[in-house]
Design a protein around this nucleic acid. Sequence first.
DNA 1: ATGAAAGCGCTAACAG
DNA 2: CTGTTAGCGCTTTCAT
Lengths: 347, 347
Amino acid sequence: MTTMKEIARQTGVSVSTVSLVMNHRDAGRVKPEIASRVRETARQLGYQINPMARSLRTNSTRILGFISDAVATTPYAGGMILGAQSAASRLGYMLITVSTDGGMKEDDEIDALKRYGADGFLYAKMSNRITDVPSKLLDYPVVLTDATDRNGVIPSVEPNEFLIAYDATTHLIKAGCERIAYVGCSETMIAQEGRLAGYRAALENAGRDFDERVVTNVPNNGPALREVSTLFDAEHPDGFFCFNDARAWYVYECAARRGLTVGKDISVVGVDNHRVFAETLEPQLTTVELPHFEMGYWAATKLISMIENRPMNDIEWPKTTAPLPPIDAPIPAKIHCTLLEKGSVAR
Amino acid sequence: MTTMKEIARQTGVSVSTVSLVMNHRDAGRVKPEIASRVRETARQLGYQINPMARSLRTNSTRILGFISDAVATTPYAGGMILGAQSAASRLGYMLITVSTDGGMKEDDEIDALKRYGADGFLYAKMSNRITDVPSKLLDYPVVLTDATDRNGVIPSVEPNEFLIAYDATTHLIKAGCERIAYVGCSETMIAQEGRLAGYRAALENAGRDFDERVVTNVPNNGPALREVSTLFDAEHPDGFFCFNDARAWYVYECAARRGLTVGKDISVVGVDNHRVFAETLEPQLTTVELPHFEMGYWAATKLISMIENRPMNDIEWPKTTAPLPPIDAPIPAKIHCTLLEKGSVAR
DNA sequence: ATGAAAGCGCTAACAG
DNA sequence: CTGTTAGCGCTTTCAT
């Protein structure tokens, strides 16, 4: 492993000069010619900065802690992690992920992350809920992902449920459906509210009436199938907007039992939480994916902007890597998530 | 953040003594009475070792790199990560996870991990395949997870497909099924071979004949439904062992169209890859879960044993935390995965 | 049995 | 503009 000392020796300058150059702090402080000689030897030697040594000095590790409650039991987490990792990676940060399912004590995991010097934390829930942020986190920069702070002080990135439902419903309208049902969720979730509103807005915007008879809120298991069944026989919808793919499955089963084929006799749009339908049922089912990647991406970006204490749109993007969502504040409208700046945010 | 210096000051000893004690290297070198005074102040001050500073000296970070190819697109990864995290955490290690889907360049991620000082790597694929280990990894300790090294030199932890299929089929036999079909996978995967053998062995062990007519290997999409349909009408099986839940879904759809109810008229056991069925269809469907958690757990354990250069069964387990798979070599038989020691392993 | 001192690779004052 | 110096928190000889 090449060190600055080595570069200094080979270039015939001091380590401090090398340090300055390697950290792009050489403008007006190091003669350009020397600077470029330093860069050249660094390149030749394949120099990689030693983040450990640096953090020991600076008390900043460029490590982000990602705390999730359910990496093992849902596929959602993966997308978020990936989004966060992408943003982090582009800005020179690293992500350490811990999960608190599987019997891991949350506080212990937070301690471990702190020991390893995390500069800030992403606190992720796997579906938008009012959330208490662990007090251990409050002395660090934190951004919530797919969750809402109970006290309204921590910034969060959440799905735009209204837009998701609006677009899905509009899709069914354009596909020619006459009677569009909403198979919702009976648990009180933040998502449900926005979805219903979006569904309603899309209908009314198309000059249709909102009809309570085709709206059903089913719980997550067994008896749900009966409710969907009733809906089928009583209302004969030809389009279904489903809260998630478990509900989409009820629709499939009911259709099959009635000799109806999805994609021909009826249309279904489901919000895709698991990937099984996406893999199996295309092109019968249109799935809407929750913007997990984007949420992770923007949350990490926001977190870094807090850590480095500069505004979102001031963040300098390395030009080196592949195309990804551009970084301009605010989050582009067509991406279905929103950044909620909260009271605690300096600017 | 309390430092050793502070503890030394308050206890009236030197830092070296504190270091000795905090690293449990004090046996016979520090007077027991002093040692316990040191431990006491450390406890009072809530001392936590600074891993950065330590690694700067020792060139060992107790960081494990977990490289996955698909955290975002499958839910498998989560379980593995969690298992690896559990084992790591119990042995005082930390896991840094990177994924190479989502356009991340694998080599770049490996470089980043190396910069952060990873002591070794877990290289995970999301279904058992013959795999080339990136050459960048070969100068570090590596364990493959759910993958098999093409050159047969890297140790790996893989699912025991035979056992999985054997148990699933036996389950159907005990449930009273007379004619048990195997809905397999037509892609050449390592899993398929073991599953078919396990299915066959279970049948023969129960004194039944293996009957090719109820064995079907369907590809992953569309036309598959027709093959299952044919199987239904031509052979009338009353039990189905499905390669995964996409295939289980075909069986469900066919059953529904024939007015048959799963859990009453026919029985289905599917290997659960996604969670949707587990969440939705209980108790109609019996799912067998792949031992993702266990694979991650054992792989991390093995990796640490390699890093610290001691045998698996020599690993000291902290007694502090919740019950988890016990650590004795070999891996207990009822856990459906196997550790393959390979040529490169010292012992 | 304990402490003093050097040094891991880097950054940041401060001199020059 | 560039180099010298000190020190981040820890481990590790080497004296005592």
